[in-house]
Nucleic acid binder design. Structure first.
Lengths: 154, 154
DNA sequence: CTTGATGCAAATGGTTTGCATGTTT
DNA sequence: AAACATGCAAACCATTTGCATCAAG
């Protein structure tokens, strides 16, 4: 079920298969997303990293590329609270539990949602294709540790 | 568990109990949210409605009020895709299934998430307090109706 | 050579903020 | 009076867009 992590060339081929043109900017974006693994990157972070090798690639191009890749289903989009949108390669679909106290996030395998999907199907005939959920709550550490400074506060 | 729908005075009392001041703007915001029921309103929509009776209440005040009310736990925040943030009274916690084909949204009772919450607790000691989730997918109509024009397309 | 992609700069739009003033307590 | 809330206008910042140029097919 979980596709093995693809190579850059796989991704690039996939991209061309969808009728998108093979450009340096796009290769760079895919390369960075590949390096990032399951980390989530914003358009800006992505652009910054790309600038190291390709100073000419413009932020707006990164946005356009991300749009294209998302539309093509190559990447997934995740939005956390009021932070800027983040992206990561599709195929590694997962969800998040975010601690509202300390900001910690736990990655959850896609299948945690299975029961919900079943229920939606049964009750509403709704075929769920959950791409990215964020479940808020309190992590174990904060539950018993109670008050504690927040590492990734706004 | 599900609190009966409160009156405006209940809410207002609650607000003061939290140490917030009782102002016209805040009363107006709460009043509109109460009228809205389980509909989700953006700050702008809210401001527009409030302007009917209180033309002086400024949009920025609405934002500040919403922040305050959210912080106080009186209202809940929902964010849909790339649309502006929406608000509704807390207490009516629910989730959404949104059809990516036709845009239809189904409100789901909070308890559909119970299995997920249990699992998070068991596997990660994470106490979930899911406030608002949006699950994407395809609604029954679009599943069998297949291709069909989208009423609320971008 | 045709169409899609890019760079750049400028516009957008939701949301936030600084500050002086008005209100609540 | 003191602390807080508001109105207003200006600032912010992520994202989008128009357009002329460039590169991929």
């Amino acid at each position: 079920m979980a596709a093995a992590r693809p190579t850059l060339d796989d991704l690039f081929a996939e991209l061309r298969a969808r009728g998108l043109r093979a450009t340096t900017a796009r290769r760079a974006v895919l390369a960075e997303l590949l390096v990032a693994g399951d980390t989530h990157l914003t358009a800006d972070e992505l652009a910054r990293r790309i600038h190291a090798d390709h100073p000419a690639v413009h932020l707006s191009t990164v946005y356009r590329t991300l749009d294209a890749l998302a539309e093509a289903g190559l990447i997934a989009v995740a939005r956390f609270a009021d932070q800027p949108v983040t992206y990561h390669l599709a195929g590694d679909v997962h969800h998040h539990a975010v601690c509202t106290a300390c900001g910690a996030t736990i990655n959850l395998p896609a299948e945690v949602l299975a029961p919900v999907q079943r229920r939606l199907a049964r009750d509403h005939g709704f075929v769920a294709d959950p791409r990215h959920l964020t479940i808020t709550g309190t992590c174990a550490a904060c539950v018993d540790g109670a008050a504690r400074p927040s590492p990734s506060e706004r």
